[in-house]
Computed example of a mutant assay.
Amino acid sequence: MPEHTPESTPLSREWQAFWLALGFLTRIPMLVRIDYSQALMNRSSVYFPVIGLLLGALYALAYLLMALLWPPVVSLLLVLALHLWLTGAFHEDGLADSVDALGGGYTVADRLRIMKDSRIGTYGTVALVTALALKVALLAEASPVWLALLIAPCVARLTPLLMMRAMHYVSDPGTSKSKPVAEAFSGRRLLVATAFVALACLAMMPWAPMLPILAAISVTLVGLAWGRNLEHNIGGYTGDALGAGVVFTELALLLGLAALA
């Protein structure tokens, strides 16, 4: 259906874009009518950090409640299970597929083919287990834990937006879920998303004064390092690579928070 209906307004289109982003990144049902279009899908990407903050709020609240009954590590593992269920392991799947492709492919065509394969190989399994274990270990060292759970998903979802703006998309547009999100992603909406993440980090400064700096460093380093690796190996980014970028950014930020703690 077209995005612009007679009763459509800029505010209603943004409201639909928010719910479309929620449905794209999570398993949470969309409770509003969506006039789907590729333009609306692209518009929704600006809300990725907002969705990350909402997820983070759920994780932080869940942890605080679970910690009343169980030890911290058990509570963190339960929160991790909640995260994987709510998101359908969306970004973790991208991490496993990306590492499998870069580790097992010798040509660009081979790497892209492996990345589309739904099966997980040795490289992907090792990367996934390591990332999940490291995430729990770093969260256990963060202080306060609830802050790390709250802010990391928000900051991490800015990295894909930077990559989409700076790099070329490489995959089969007929089979990709990410192409409508990435196409014609505007610099103005990237600035809006960046400003939202910056404000969220500034609001958390009473508990973590270095948080804005750590967030900026994490997003920049992962965006540059992971982006350069992708450009060298496949000539751009894919949807799976964007998901891996989210996981890498979360780990980079948690490493910083744990070091300060």
Results as ranks from 00 to 15, higher is better:
Ala96Trp: 14
Val219Asp: 04
Val108Tyr: 07
Val129Ala: 11
Asp100Cys: 05
Leu11Cys: 12
Leu138Glu: 03
Val126Tyr: 01
Pro10Asn: 05
Ala252Phe: 11
Ser75Val: 01
Gly223Met: 11
Thr87Pro: 02
Val129Gly: 04
Ala137Tyr: 06
Val136Met: 08
Pro10Glu: 09
Ala89Met: 09
Glu250Phe: 02
Leu251Arg: 07
Pro153Asn: 00
Ala198Val: 01
Gly124Val: 00
Ala258Thr: 08
Ala166Lys: 14
Lys116Asn: 10
Val197Asn: 02
Cys201Gly: 10
Leu251Ala: 04
Arg111Phe: 04
His232Val: 09
Arg165Lys: 14
Asn42Trp: 02
Leu40Asp: 04
Arg119Phe: 01
Ser186Trp: 12
Arg119Glu: 03
Asp97Trp: 12
Val222Trp: 07
Leu253Tyr: 12
Asp100Lys: 02
Ala67Asp: 09
Gly174Ala: 14
Val145Ile: 14
Pro173Phe: 06
Phe18Tyr: 09
Glu14Phe: 00
Leu257Arg: 13
Ala131Glu: 06
Gly52Asn: 00
Leu257His: 03
Pro180Asp: 02
Asp110Gln: 15
Asp117Ser: 08
Ala81Val: 12
Leu77Trp: 09
Leu61Glu: 15
Leu161Thr: 00
Ala62Phe: 11
Tyr36Leu: 08
Ala57Cys: 12
Met1Gly: 15
Leu55Thr: 01
Thr238Met: 04
Leu68Ile: 11
Trp15Gly: 04
Pro206Thr: 10
Arg157Trp: 12
Tyr63Pro: 09
Met66Asn: 04
Met210Arg: 14
Leu25His: 03
Val145Ala: 06
Arg13Ile: 05
Arg165Trp: 09
Met204Leu: 08
Leu214Gly: 07
Pro72Val: 11
Ser171Ala: 15
Ala252Ile: 11
Leu78Val: 01
Trp15Glu: 09
Val246Lys: 01
Pro206Gln: 08
Val32Cys: 11
Thr122Lys: 01
Ser8Gln: 06
Thr125Ala: 10
Ala89Lys: 07
Leu22Gly: 04
Asp117Glu: 08
Gly235Leu: 06
Leu242Val: 03
Val192Glu: 00
Ala21Lys: 02
Thr130Lys: 00
Leu65Met: 11
Ala184Leu: 13
Arg43Leu: 14
Arg228Met: 15
Val99Ser: 09
Leu84Val: 07
Phe90Tyr: 14
Gly236Trp: 00
Leu25Glu: 00
Met41Gln: 15
Gly121Cys: 09
Ser171Leu: 02
Pro10Met: 09
Thr194His: 01
Leu150Pro: 11
Gly227Tyr: 02
Gln38His: 10
Ser218Leu: 04
Arg27Ile: 04
Trp70Met: 10
Leu11Asp: 14
Thr238Leu: 00
Ala152Leu: 06
Ser186Lys: 10
Phe18Gly: 09
Glu231Thr: 13
Phe48Glu: 04
Gly56Glu: 03
Thr122Tyr: 01
Leu11Asn: 13
Leu214Val: 11
Thr5Ser: 01
Leu69Trp: 15
Ser12Phe: 06
Glu3Gly: 14
Tyr36Asp: 08
Leu132Asp: 01
Leu112Ser: 01
Ala182Pro: 00
Met115Ile: 04
Ala241Gly: 12
Leu20Phe: 13
